[in-house]
Amino acid sequence: MHGKGLRGLSVATIVVLVGAFAIAAFYAPLDADQGFRQKIFYLHVPLAIVSLVGFIVGGLLAVQHLRSRASIWDLRSYVAIHISLILGVAVLVTGAIWAKTSWGVWWLWDEPTLVSFLIVFLLYATYTPMRFAIEDPERQARYASVFAIAGGAFVPICFGAVRAQEQEVHPQTFGSGELPGPMWLTFLVSLAGMALLFATLYRFEIETKLTRGRLRALRRRLLDDDAPVQRRSAAPTI
């Protein structure tokens, strides 16, 4: 269970993430119109960015899998999407909470970013059931990669399409260049923290899966089990 550098990565994650939340609470100035509520921004937006990038990365890793046909790439793609899905739950919940504080409703259909994220999330929610429904591990990996590539390409397209003509009511603190320096800094630190969190969870999950694979192989060897009973699983088998 000692992935190289996993411990250092975990410590860095905790330090940066806690630091980010601390400066979000104490250092970042209050937003002029949103007040304290704007602090959700430092949680919600980095989470959303990291989660979406994770989906796209899952697609790129799947391309690598289809090229090389090495199951390690399928495992990497699976884990990237898996972690993104978990973070995606937090994105939707924090997004709904932010909508509630900003506009008084839990959900706002006029809000293209939130809606696009929901669509992407619904698509990826079928990724695990799809894997689970294919028994042959090799075929499962192949089909999952096709899904991951199509999904990874769908993410930016979907955001473009939904955004195209909806009016913008998303709190435009971001990207418009009017974000004051301290807020911008806080946001960047939070983003770095989230990215580190993603990297840590990703590494952790990969190490666990690989170790489990080795453990099973060892068990098979010790028990002279030539034909192991393959339990059906959505996770890739190494």
Partner: peptide
Amino acid sequence: YVAAAYLFF
């Protein structure tokens, strides 16, 4: 609400 969001995370 802010607290709720961070706590949920």
